[in-house]
Write a protein that binds this DNA or RNA. Structure first.
Lengths: 229, 229
DNA sequence: GACGAATTAGACAAGAGTGTCTAAATTTGT
DNA sequence: ACAAATTTAGACACTCTTGTCTAATTCGTC
């Protein structure tokens, strides 16, 4: 009967578009109204889709919510790893390169739509879905922090920095780069490009005052660091 | 007729106890379930009070919520200012004293029941009550950050630190002291005393690497910069 | 112990939201 | 253009919640 035995289910073209539209709208609404405050009609309206379609795709409100969180976690992780891969391993201008990296991290991962949504959902509903957010913790922070720490360790090993504990340094780097954005984050706002740059600049300067290699011991005649072999 | 013309209304003894009990329970429940997810019966049960009593005291759910946030804001501010007043103006051991201060700040203000609740309510509902949280912003961060910055400025002026911008330094101090607690905060957890101490210790050490006064100017012949006049 | 105020349990109407169902309309692949 | 699958609007039963009301009870004070 079925000549299309291939991948079992061959969803129509528009199907995936609807799905994506629902995910988008649901993220927005759950984030704005919290799980309990969100209602399906709101999401349907925002997605430009009928309520029934949402039930067809996701079953019920809770399953939809879980799908959203999983989706955001995945996308954010991808973004973070992509950004980590731009870490300045061989910096020409250490300060400028680290500032640029911090700005990228903030703009692409922390202030992005996905980053903001995921953060808020975790804060708001984390305690209610322990397994779901344990999963996030393992897949997210559990994998990204070591990756960032490894980059700093390499930078230190190459003689650019003077770091004892790369894990601590990585967390402090991020904390410093965000130091001036906390209040804005608290209220769900999105800092301007200028605020991000300011905070990153101040943060990286302090970071380097703490961790920059001290005068290269060897032939320190002026105060310029003659690195490299 | 009334010999007790004094403060007009003389509420019975138990009245205030009930009021406090309601505030406690409501804070807990709003925080755990979010505004939309909380229901009055839950709060009544947790407060050991009948539903009607809550309506007698506060009118409706929204007024109750606003009262909670105002109350938490006030209490947290009081705690923060009390803690700021223990800032080490004349440190005997700069590192140890700053670590102790950071720990106090974290334990009494950030990790405390009130601090945790206020933070969560602001994050979850901030966008829905712009005026209420604008008020918080003015009364809270708007007054506490300058106060902390002033203490750091004084410490720098007294020759203990080398700081250009005390406002930036104050924010970075706090960011560093909390750097290792972020993930825990995210999920609504309360870090152990040990974690708080760890994070504060690492944070303050980095802070001092960045801002401690360089070799006391006097007998600097090797590679220290002879600043000052 | 008696009075007045506050609290209580329970019923109640009104409204809102979830999830199901149906029949009609639309879209997709061929 | 046809057949199958998907989407749609609307009605629906059901549950939950808010906020009000009443009558009985408890509490604090004298």
């Amino acid at each position: 009967m079925k000549h299309d035995v291939s991948p079992d289910t061959i969803p129509p073209r528009g199907h995936e578009a609807k799905r994506a539209s629902i995910m988008d709208a649901a993220g927005e609404v759950f984030c704005r109204e919290s799980f309990a405050g969100a209602n399906i009609d709101m999401i349907a309206a925002e997605a430009g889709v009928s309520r029934q379609t949402i039930y067809n795709h996701h079953g019920d409100k809770e399953k939809l919510f879980v799908a959203i969180v999983r989706d955001l976690t995945e996308r954010c992780n991808a973004g973070i790893f992509a950004t980590i891969s731009t870490f300045p391993d061989q910096p020409k201008d250490l300060e400028a390169d680290l500032i640029a990296f911090a700005v990228r991290m903030n703009r692409n991962c922390i202030c992005s739509r996905d980053g903001k949504f995921l953060r808020k959902l975790i804060q708001a509903e984390g305690e209610r879905y322990p397994e779901l957010f344990a999963e996030w913790r393992e897949q997210g922070p559990g994998r990204t922090w070591p990756a960032i720490a490894a980059r700093f360790a390499r930078l230190a090993h190459a003689g650019f920095l003077d770091i004892e504990d790369p894990d601590v340094a990585a967390r402090q780097f991020q904390a410093l780069a965000n130091a001036e954005l906390q209040t804005t984050f608290m209220l769900g706002g999105t800092p301007t490009d200028d605020e991000v740059l300011q905070s990153a600049t101040h943060g990286v300067r302090t970071f380097l005052r703490a961790f920059a290699k001290r005068q290269p011991a060897a032939d320190a005649q002026k105060h310029s660091a003659l690195a490299g072999a």
